[in-house]
Amino acid sequence: MTTTSHSAIPFHVPVVDISAYVGAGTDDERAEVATAVDAACREVGFMQVLGHGIAPEVVAGLATAMDGFFGMPPDDKRRWIRPGGENRGYTPPRSESLSLSLGVESATRMNDFFEAFNVGRAVSDYPGATLLEEHYAENTWPDVAGFEPHVTAYVEEAGRVATTMTTIFADVLGLAPDFFDTIADHSIDVLRMNNYALPEGTRVDLDGDLTGMGEHTDFGIVTVLWADQVRGLQVLGGDGGWYDVLPADGALLINLGDLTARLTNERWLSTLHRVKPPLVDGTVERRRSAAFFHDGNAEAVVGPLASCVDAEHPALYDPVSVDEHIRAKLAGSRAGVRNDAAHREAARVRASGAV
């Protein structure tokens, strides 16, 4: 992992081997993992996990599928644009502004130059369940050889890693082993495959306006991120500096979402991050990532845990439904509607000097 230091103490994203929770670890081995995860959640809000159990060929299949789709001509990709409220299908470059999900008016709106393709858990995945259907739209699959099976295989594995992480979270927080099942047994789960690149031959002068993905926090419980080992992802440190983060060999990046920060009354961090892909010889160096968002049941109501509130730590949040929270966030990033409910996160963006 490479980091850029902005202070005497280098910023560090911890690397945690979670194999004791993936396989048959002993109680002592699991306790060691839980301690390391707790420290990462308190101090950084990001970690890298090894021992996650996703086979290299599954990751390679995902990368192949992404290359096949994003390598198509622009007009072919646009065939897969879905209605804005569905959070599925293709997102062209410069059609979102993630900073608005935090209630921050950025200087240039809808200027995040990444493109993406989203798939997620659908109504058909939860037969018999009563669902708020707008969060569980059926998927469409582009006519790219191998795309659906490769992506589906990765979604299953990323979902397993996400639930492994929530099992660890429950242990750390002293919760019942099934606590997260009660709020995430039919979770809004979305895989967002991202491509950071400008059309071949485009030369730019990076003057501060060109943003791969604007400053934001993730919305839900936990995010499982696969990414190329290419600079671009930057995480906001406690000192207000932005730090480059590159994944270690074979590692997945894990970060907490707003709902977990809310549950823990900010004992754990939902850390601000952004993407600023580097310029190489006047062109943007291509970078790929795939973020699996595990966001919880749409109707679940999330507020600070009683164990995280006391006289010295009063409740920082009112309870909110996952549906209400996610819709406000998406209205900011997709429709340009400033999310005024995200005042705590917006204050951190402004304090960093990012806007």
Rank of each mutant, 00 (worst) to 15 (best):
S124W: 07
D125M: 10
D125P: 06
Y126V: 05
Y126S: 02
P127W: 02
P127H: 01
P127A: 00
G128V: 04
G128M: 03
A129E: 14
T130M: 10
L131G: 09
L131F: 08
L131W: 03
L131P: 09
L132A: 12
L132E: 14
E133P: 02
E134Q: 15
E134K: 15
E134S: 13
H135F: 15
H135Y: 14
Y136I: 05
Y136W: 11
A137N: 10
A137F: 09
E138K: 10
E138A: 14
N139P: 12
N139C: 12
T140W: 00
T140Y: 00
T140A: 10
T140V: 15
W141E: 02
P142W: 04
P142G: 01
P142A: 02
D143N: 11
D143W: 02
V144F: 08
V144G: 03
A145T: 14
A145G: 07
G146D: 12
G146F: 04
F147S: 00
F147P: 00
E148A: 13
P149C: 05
P149V: 06
P149K: 00
P149W: 04
H150W: 00
V151C: 03
V151Q: 00
Y154S: 03
V155L: 05
E156Q: 13
E156L: 11
E156D: 13
E156H: 13
E156V: 12
A158K: 01
R160S: 09
A162R: 08
